[in-house]
């Protein structure tokens, strides 16, 4: 998620409402939590991507139930 998020950053999430394209979200996949940016939402599936396109790995779309919250603060 470089350059917007760096290793060691802390984020605060908020889980009211669905995220929109461009929002950064925290979500859970197989007992691990990830932070990615919402690319698009289509057919109830949320497509996410990393900001660092050179190194970001592709991840399958997620559903609403996997979302922990929208990132509202980085500190």
């Amino acid at each position: 998620m470089l350059p917007n998020f760096s290793p060691g950053d802390h984020v605060l999430t908020f889980n009211w409402g669905l995220p929109k394209s461009g929002n950064v979200i925290v979500f859970e996949v197989k007992d691990a939590f990830y932070v990615k940016r919402v690319k698009k939402i289509k057919d109830n599936l949320i497509y996410v991507t990393g900001d660092n396109m050179k190194e970001s790995s592709k991840i399958d779309p997620i559903d609403e139930g996997q979302i922990t919250g929208k990132v509202i603060w980085k500190y």
Binding site: F5, A32, F33, Y34, V35, E55, S57, I59, T68, W73
Partner: peptide, 26 residues
């Protein structure tokens, strides 16, 4: 920000990852 970091010292936040596998890009 310092207050939030201080709070995190007492209530450890969940670790989140930006990459699905490590080391990415290799």
């Amino acid at each position: 920000m310092r207050i939030l970091r201080l709070v995190d010292k007492f209530f450890s936040p969940q670790v989140v990852y930006a990459h699905c596998d490590v080391p990415c890009g290799i």
